[in-house]
Simulated scan of single mutants.
Amino acid sequence: MIGGHVIVGYADDLGGRDALALGSAITRLTGGELTIASIYPPGSPGLAVEAQAGLAHAAEELGPAPAEFLTFESRGTGRGLSVLASRIRADLIVVGSASGGQHGRIAIGATSDHLLHRSSKAVMLTPAGFKQPGELDRLTLAYVHRPQCDEAVERVAQAALRLGVPLRLITLDLRVDDPGRLRDDLALAVRLAWETTGIEAEAEVAEGHDVDAAMRTLEWLPGELLVCAASEDAEPHRVFLGELAMKVLRASERPVAVLPRGFS
């Protein structure tokens, strides 16, 4: 289950503070380790000092919660977080929404784009300004009938069982597929969750003319987390988010976790 060691990509801005709050909330739930990292470019001693100062602000924001604070030199923030996560054996990278995006939604910037297409660790993003509740209310998995999603059903069901929260499986009916087949596929996924963990998952088909419209038909609990599996095009043990899943992520009003291919 993700969350045994969480690394937060921190910058002293709204997105960084959102990521800090989410990463801290996740480790409170899982009892995992928390590392706060600030990445700066090579050959920039002034920016290195700024990164260190930013981490001091992060420590003030975080309060007494135990955490390690690291600065790391890299040509890109996403690349730096990926390398650092591997070095410290973190299993989840948390980042905030890019600046300039819509409040309450996830905006993809250069850092998150790199992570969503190359990370070897699970990646979690939080909508801009999202207020983290004290508890996790439910795990929801965006499901399509693919081997990657079947694998994710088992993994997310195990996480829900361990955390003691309900599991919901959703699929989107964008009026381009057979609705009966979509419901049959979802029923098989519910059965898979039951057979592997004993959890009786909720199942919902969201209908709409596009992803955003379909997502708006779903009700979301305050402390809900959406999970997406990597695309079939992903390299083994890498994140690669496909076009449809990227649209789901951008339409989400809750934090989204993306699992690497072959995640265990």
Rank of each mutant, 00 (worst) to 15 (best):
R79F: 09
L163R: 13
Y10H: 13
E219H: 02
E202N: 04
E204F: 02
A251Y: 08
I93L: 05
G15K: 06
G96C: 03
P127N: 03
G198P: 03
S82K: 04
L192T: 05
S82W: 01
P255T: 10
D233W: 01
V227W: 08
L55E: 08
D91T: 10
R146G: 03
G101E: 12
P260Y: 03
A229V: 06
S82L: 11
A251D: 10
F69P: 04
L20Y: 04
E195V: 04
P236M: 07
G32D: 11
L62C: 00
C228P: 09
P166C: 01
I170L: 07
F263L: 06
L29C: 05
H209T: 12
R79H: 09
A193Q: 03
D18W: 06
L141W: 02
H117W: 05
Y10N: 13
L92Q: 07
A157K: 05
T77N: 09
L136T: 09
G242C: 01
D150S: 13
A107I: 02
L81G: 06
E151T: 14
D91G: 13
T77W: 02
E154G: 13
L125I: 03
I26S: 10
L34E: 01
T197Q: 05
A189Y: 05
V8G: 07
A229L: 04
M215L: 07
E50N: 00
R79Q: 14
L244M: 13
P236D: 15
R105N: 09
A51P: 00
I108W: 10
H114Q: 14
A234H: 07
P255L: 05
E50L: 00
R155D: 11
S82M: 09
A230I: 11
D184K: 09
A51S: 07
Y10R: 10
I88E: 11
A98H: 09
I170V: 14
S44I: 00
L221F: 02
H5L: 09
E68A: 13
L116H: 11
G180N: 08
R191D: 15
V8M: 05
L174R: 04
I106S: 03
R216E: 14
G4R: 15
V83N: 02
A189T: 09
D12W: 05
S264T: 11
G3P: 02
L14R: 14
S264A: 14
L62F: 02
A59P: 06
L84R: 03
A193I: 01
V8D: 05
A251V: 12
A59S: 08
G109P: 12
A59T: 05
S82R: 10
R79K: 11
V153K: 13
R261Q: 15
V239W: 10
V248Q: 14
L161P: 00
